[in-house]
């Protein structure tokens, strides 16, 4: 086998795997009813139709808006809350078990409560998305801010650093990689929150697409929507990993 053949072999197998997957999809679809499992080609044309009609772009925009606002809140509250918890010992010790409990609880269970407090609309859904995503950010930030190398703190002290300078030059830069790991996890959770809120509260966006077309037994459109969500999620997770790696690049030596 030539060298080029060797290099091309790996990706070639991956592509072969993808093609095989599409083929299997097509075959299953061809042997079941459209109301159970649409073929790959039917899904693609449904995807195309939704895009052309503007239905998909609108749904995407709505969902992304919800996701972005909710995640933004989760990041801000998670990051600064984490720093606060690292700073104030009593607060951290006191709240720690409850935060860990909330981290392990499916936030879905809180949606009816939130519904009764904040309604159906965007405001409530943003809160849901934020609640889904905030816990890993909060926990990781606190852990990071607390684990600053004692040696580095000593260096700062020897240069007569005041507290504000300590945060700015030492603690926050040290914490950022940890926070970004939390953000990556938060992205995944907030995506679930986005869909869950679209299922349980006012149906909009991609969740609405899925629900509506499921009710119409239109698997082609449903699978197309799932495909879009998967693609969106993969991209967002990729971005999340990228951000995480970027902020951790100086950690090579630590």
């Amino acid at each position: 086998m030539t060298a080029l053949g060797g290099v091309a072999r790996g990706p070639a197998i991956s592509i072969a795997g993808l093609v095989a997957g599409a083929l299997v999809w097509q075959l299953i679809g061809a042997h079941t009813q459209a109301s159970s499992f649409a073929t790959f080609t039917a899904t693609c044309s449904a995807l195309w139709a939704m895009t052309k009609s503007g239905e998909l772009p609108r749904a995407l925009e709505s969902s992304l808006e919800l996701f972005a606002i909710g995640l933004a809140f989760a990041i801000v509250i998670g990051f600064f809350g984490g720093l606060l918890l690292a700073r104030i010992r009593v607060l951290r010790i006191g709240l720690e078990p409850y935060i860990l409990m909330l981290y392990a609880t499916p936030m879905f269970a809180l949606i009816p409560l939130l519904l009764s407090l904040f309604g159906f609309e965007l405001r409530a859904k943003v809160i849901v998305v934020a609640l889904f995503g905030v816990w890993p950010i909060l926990i990781n930030t606190t852990e990071g801010a607390r684990s600053v190398n004692a040696d580095l703190l000593e260096v700062a002290e020897s240069y007569r650093s005041n507290e504000r300078q300590l945060w700015r030059h030492v603690i926050i830069p040290y914490t950022l990689p940890y926070a970004m790991t939390g953000v990556r996890q938060g992205i995944a959770r907030s995506l679930v929150g986005m869909l869950a809120s679209e299922y349980l509260l006012a149906a909009t966006g991609l969740g609405n697409l899925i629900l509506t077309y499921t009710n119409r037994f239109d698997t082609a459109h449903v699978l197309a929507a799932v495909l879009v969500i998967t693609l969106l999620a993969t991209i967002l997770m990729g971005i999340g990993r990228g951000i995480e790696n970027y902020f951790a690049r100086w950690k090579a030596g630590v």
């Binding site: 679930v192 869909l195 869950a196 969500i229």
Partner: peptide
């Protein structure tokens, strides 16, 4: 599948 929120699959 790991990236995707699996609850997207529930209705289908």
């Amino acid at each position: 599948f790991f990236a995707m929120p699996i609850i997207a699959m529930v209705p289908v």
